[in-house]
């Protein structure tokens, strides 16, 4: 059986205004898996993700690579769990692209040469060579998303967490990103309601609504369950619906 790299047990969380965001969340992720967390708006997906690197701390247990998240091991956990936020503008806050990508490694107190090597390498890998001196605020959305991804991949995390990675992207740019994510051979956790993305990238799906897990299973089984999806404000992805139509014909 594969090693469990993320284990969430009886996780409950409420915001200061008493809004209950998570109720008795239970699920786990095995090493190498690509797991999608799907659900309607307000289901608690982003709130859940923020628990995985200790930014939010609810009641219950969150274990990452066997370690229960606590104040003492936060830095270690954040090295292992790389989180790409939904809005790249929330992730890019330094004067240049180079500074933004180097922000994480600097906080790890890596050597200067190592930082420069890592930053140059990841920028090249994502097709961002020559972008180092540019200001992030002058980039297009697709470029900002790439830089956001670079800021996390440069830390060489073991687990990659993506919050709505393809939101607002045009189809061509979305295609590019899907290919990028397919090439990343790490454990991936993707929170999204883009079910076409899920059908192409993920093997396991967790359906959330109102802060709790409604269903968990193989991607194929969950995404073909029309009633289940529609009961939770989702739809069978167009790619699967088209295949079904073709089979019916």
């Amino acid at each position: 059986m594969n090693e469990r790299v993320i284990e969430v047990e009886n996780l409950n969380f409420s915001y200061p205004d008493k809004t209950i965001a998570l109720r008795n969340m239970n699920f786990s992720v095995s090493r190498g898996e690509s797991l999608a967390i799907i659900g309607p708006n307000g289901a608690g997906k982003s709130t859940l993700l923020l628990h995985l690197n200790g930014v939010l701390r609810g009641e219950g247990t969150v274990r990452v690579l066997g370690e229960k998240i606590s104040k003492e091991n936060l830095k270690r956990i954040r090295e292992k769990v790389g989180m790409v936020f939904q809005d790249p503008n929330d992730q890019l806050f330094m004067p240049t692209v180079f500074d933004d990508v180097a922000f994480g490694p600097l906080n790890l107190y890596l050597e200067r040469e190592e930082i420069e090597k890592r930053v140059d390498s990841i920028l090249k890998e994502l097709g961002l060579e020559g972008y180092g001196k540019k200001s992030p605020s002058h980039l297009s959305l697709g470029e900002k998303k790439k830089v956001s991804l670079a800021t996390v991949l440069v830390l060489e995390p073991e687990i990659l967490v993506l919050d709505e990675p393809t939101i607002s992207l045009d189809p061509g740019t979305k295609r590019i990103f899907i290919d990028i994510y397919k090439d990343i051979k790490k454990t991936k956790l993707i929170a999204t309601h883009d079910l076409d993305l899920v059908s192409q990238l993920c093997s396991i799906v967790v359906l959330m609504d109102k802060g709790t897990v409604i269903a968990e299973g193989a991607c194929r089984d969950i995404l073909r369950n029309k009633k289940l999806l529609e009961d939770h404000s989702l739809e069978v992805p167009a790619s699967l619906a088209l295949n079904r139509l073709k089979r019916q014909e």
């Binding site: 930014v55 954040r78 929330d90 180097a102 994480g104 906080n107 830390l155």
Partner: peptide
Amino acid sequence: ERSERIYASMLSRGYEGKIQTLSF
């Protein structure tokens, strides 16, 4: 609200209260 999200992003990348730069 936006500043809270940015702060969360900084924490996620190891920020501990001190802005580091490559310059010495």
